[in-house]
Simulated assay, not measured.
Amino acid sequence: MTQCDNSTNDVWRPRVTVACVVSDGDRYLMVEEEVNGRLAYNQPAGHLDDKESLHQAAVRETREETGWTVELTHLIGVHQWRSSEHGEVIVRFTFAAKPLHHDLEQQLDTGVRRALWLTRREIADLGERLRSPMVLMTIDDWLGGQRLPLSIVGNLMPNGGNP
């Protein structure tokens, strides 16, 4: 039997990320960002921080990247993908959310040029400029009726994941 020493850095770990599909009628909240010297389009998304629940991370990332406060409504899905940007495996939890309030004074995250609302057709037309294939896939999952209860994502962190 082999023991795993978690104190070493040679244990493989995927990057855990969150994203939100935020819809307003037939439009979806998107982020235009600079990635490795090119413009890319993504849903509001980012990495899970230590001592943070997945739910909290999704709401935080949306606010930081777009200025929108949102309320999560469902889990759309969990997807695994090897990034073409850096070659690492991403495990992405994608939530559906409804927009509540937009703060026009919110400074957006570094690298984010702007937040914008686009239709599914406009998003599909971006083609290779989409940050990952998960962008359009999760919108299509949402449109296809894929909605899991938020309670499916358990949180056993002390204080609900609050730092």
Rank of each mutant, 00 (worst) to 15 (best):
A58G: 07
A96Y: 01
Q146V: 02
H47K: 14
S53V: 09
K51F: 11
A40V: 12
H47N: 13
R147W: 01
N155L: 08
H55Y: 13
E88V: 12
R114I: 12
V153P: 05
N155A: 06
T119C: 06
H47W: 11
L150M: 08
F95E: 00
D140G: 01
R121W: 12
A40L: 13
E71I: 00
T66L: 00
Q106Y: 06
S132R: 00
F95Y: 11
T73G: 05
G46A: 11
V78L: 05
R129L: 10
I123T: 04
L39Q: 11
D103T: 08
Q43T: 11
H86V: 13
Q56W: 03
K98M: 12
E52M: 15
R82G: 07
Q107G: 13
I139R: 02
Q80C: 10
H74R: 08
R82W: 08
S53E: 10
L54H: 07
L104E: 15
R63W: 06
D125Q: 15
L136S: 02
T138I: 01
D125E: 15
R114L: 14
E71C: 09
P133T: 06
R120S: 11
H102P: 09
N36H: 13
H55A: 07
G111Y: 04
T94I: 02
V112Y: 06
R131P: 01
M134C: 04
T110K: 15
W68H: 09
V59I: 15
L39W: 10
L156E: 09
R63C: 01
H55D: 12
A124L: 06
N36G: 06
R60M: 06
P149L: 12
A96S: 08
W68K: 03
G46H: 03
G127D: 15
D109Q: 13
R147S: 03
H101W: 14
D140R: 02
W68P: 00
Q146H: 04
N42F: 09
R92Y: 02
S53T: 14
P133Y: 04
R114P: 09
R63E: 06
A45F: 01
H74V: 01
H86R: 05
E64T: 12
I123M: 04
N36F: 15
S83E: 06
L156P: 00
N155K: 11
Y41K: 05
V112A: 07
I152L: 15
Q80Y: 09
L108E: 03
L150H: 09
A40R: 08
V59R: 08
E85M: 07
R113S: 05
G111N: 05
L72N: 03
T119K: 02
D50L: 08
P44K: 00
A97K: 01
K98S: 10
I90L: 15
L108A: 07
T110V: 11
K51D: 10
T94R: 00
L156A: 14
H102G: 09
L48D: 01
V153S: 04
D109F: 14
